[in-house]
Design a protein around this nucleic acid. Structure first.
Lengths: 353, 353
DNA sequence: GTGAAAGCGCTAACAG
DNA sequence: CTGTTAGCGCTTTCAC
């Protein structure tokens, strides 16, 4: 094995002390220009780069942050949703700008351990999709490490959080449809009360509810497809059967994720249901593929890359100790993107129009 | 700031020496069961976890590997291709099983620096999409750190590499079409000679070429759409115009990525070209969304998650020092997945059928 | 300006 | 069985 070159080697070769080398590296202390140049030259010659491990040992800081994403099912596979890649892209980009590195960890539910946070002296953590009452969140807080929670809807006002205005998004989706004359609007969502707490889906539902109520349209639980639904294309496909069965009643459907909409549309296509003529479909997230579907999917867009960037920024502010100045919650605004999957209600069933 | 609890604190509280604590933690040396229990109890009480930084300082190993993915354009944004997420999923999963952590880094072309490898004592590196002659690859090799290259087609036989049998994939795609009677088969690809080397796309092209030649079909450069093409949905859409212009000649098209196919199909749809009636389309990668497109996309599937797992496994073997035993190249097999986007050639233009 | 020396938390010899 | 001790590579006073 190649012997690591250390600061000592540099010092010897440059005929200075290790302290001076250290000063040169960090631009600290007073070192004559001549020495600086000489040391730098040697550093280059030796291809020396300082050991983070040794630095961390003193500094108790690693210039590294952790990203914790949820896993799907007991096999611990990451969610196959492009959403996460977008988010991670944003985080990584933000980290790179500040010379932080990103450690990606998935946490298998039920076996959350965050020992790595202390072991690796992580400077901070971005947690995606936590929820109120989640054991690991409590554990995390006890660790006393800077954290930013993304899409987590935690009630503790001291926590740093980034999310979408999901309620506004749900509202936009429903409003878009009511404006088109729809009244019987179904919703497909993973359980709104995710493990007993009120998260992303619940808030999207609230927005939907508000929009309907404003129009005097009753909100009926039988139009909420929620049972056994997970945020996946396969699940959207499956629930298509139930949607189809209600097609004499329902004229539009909102799925709380684009990938579910994708599955649903496939099912409906296969059964020769014309979208948007027979039924309008709205997705959520605004993933890149929505505009390439046919018809293109009307969706509630969120800037997921930016979400990642904001989370990273918030974390860095916290690490830098700007706790007081900054506001702790960042709420991004969704945006309605109208595609070809929604259309005005046709004569089909409109008792009071 | 909370004072880090160290091995010393544990030692004091348990009335033993730090060496004993160390032994307990690592299950080394001979320690009496009684002491072990006492020490473990204190460790738990104090919520102690050993500092990796300190360990690394001795071990010159970090139990961490780096994943280097290419970035898109000068802004350094990660590629918006679900392919990468799948790959990273596989890598992360493999790492987790072995208690390694994964650091995700993107490398901006032209400013490749791998100083972090030494700085952080990374135990290994998985590099995605390198290519022959890439400066950073050479730099990397000089670092003398275990590496696995994914999809990189590097000629050096000593390197550990994982890739798909791209040539077989290209062949399958073309063969599928020739069997359906197609003869004028276009290809859409990012430059085959990526920066002068022969990588993924070139090999897919070779397979295509072989399939055509076997059928006595001439391979014509004018059917290869390559100029200004990048692996993105937008690019597929753009090139649609050129494809459309050739529609009296071309009866099928292979894109060397699903996301390009997605863009292409959108363009063709918008121009009322019926797929597969007017033209057959084949994609590449087998990303999840292909089966949800309409028509579903015929594609050359590769198990990308597994690719990540294999890469991780290969890296771990190398780290474990099993260099000799293992074969250094792992080639995964693609699989044709027939969807609704391809169909037998209709009477349109078939001089000799 | 520069250097000597004391650790940071841990592991690994080596004593006892 | 358990403790002492010498570093790993670096930063950081504090002298010179």
């Amino acid at each position: 094995m190649k012997q690591r070159t250390s600061i000592t080697n540099v010092a010897e070769k440059a005929n200075v002390s290790i302290a001076t080398v250290s000063n040169v590296i960090n631009g600290k202390g007073r070192v004559s220009k001549k020495t600086v140049d000489r040391v730098n030259k040697v550093i280059k010659e030796l291809g020396f780069s300082p050991s983070m491990a040794a630095r961390n040992l003193k500094a108790i800081s690693s210039h590294m942050i952790g990203v914790v994403v949820p896993t799907l099912g007991h096999k611990g596979r990451l969610h196959a949703n492009p959403f996460y890649w977008d988010l991670v892209s944003g985080i990584e980009e933000g980290a790179r700008d500040r010379e932080f590195h990103v450690m990606l960890t998935s946490v298998v539910e039920g076996e959350e351990t965050f020992s790595f946070v202390k072991e690796r002296h992580l400077d901070g953590l971005i947690v995606v999709g936590g929820y109120e009452g989640m054991k690991s969140v409590e554990h995390l807080l006890s660790l006393d490490v800077p954290c930013v929670f993304v899409d987590s809807y935690l009630s503790n006002p001291d926590l740093y959080q980034v999310f979408l205005d999901d309620k506004a998004g749900g509202y936009m989706a429903a409003e878009h449809l009511t404006k088109l004359g729809h009244k019987r609007i179904a919703v497909i969502t993973e359980d709104r009360g995710h493990r007993g707490s009120e998260g992303v889906n619940y808030n999207r539902y609230l927005g939907y509810k508000k929009a309907l109520e404003e129009e005097g349209i009753p909100v009926e639980e039988e139009l909420i497809f929620e049972k056994d639904v997970t945020t996946s294309a396969g699940s959207g496909y499956k629930v298509g059967r139930e949607v189809l069965a209600k097609l004499d009643d329902v004229t539009a459907v909102i799925t709380f994720s684009d990938i579910m909409a994708m599955g649903l549309m496939k099912y409906l296509n296969e059964h020769h249901i014309n979208i948007p003529h027979d039924i309008s479909v709205v997705g959520f997230d605004g993933l890149f593929f929505t505009e390439y579907m046919s018809p293109s999917l009307t969706t509630i867009y969120q800037d997921t890359v930016r979400k990642g960037q904001e989370a990273m920024q918030l974390l860095l502010d916290q690490i830098d100790g700007k706790n007081s100045v900054v506001k702790r919650k960042i709420v991004l605004s969704p945006e309605l993107r109208v595609g070809g999957s929604t259309a005005p209600l046709t004569k089909k069933n409109l008792p009071n129009l």
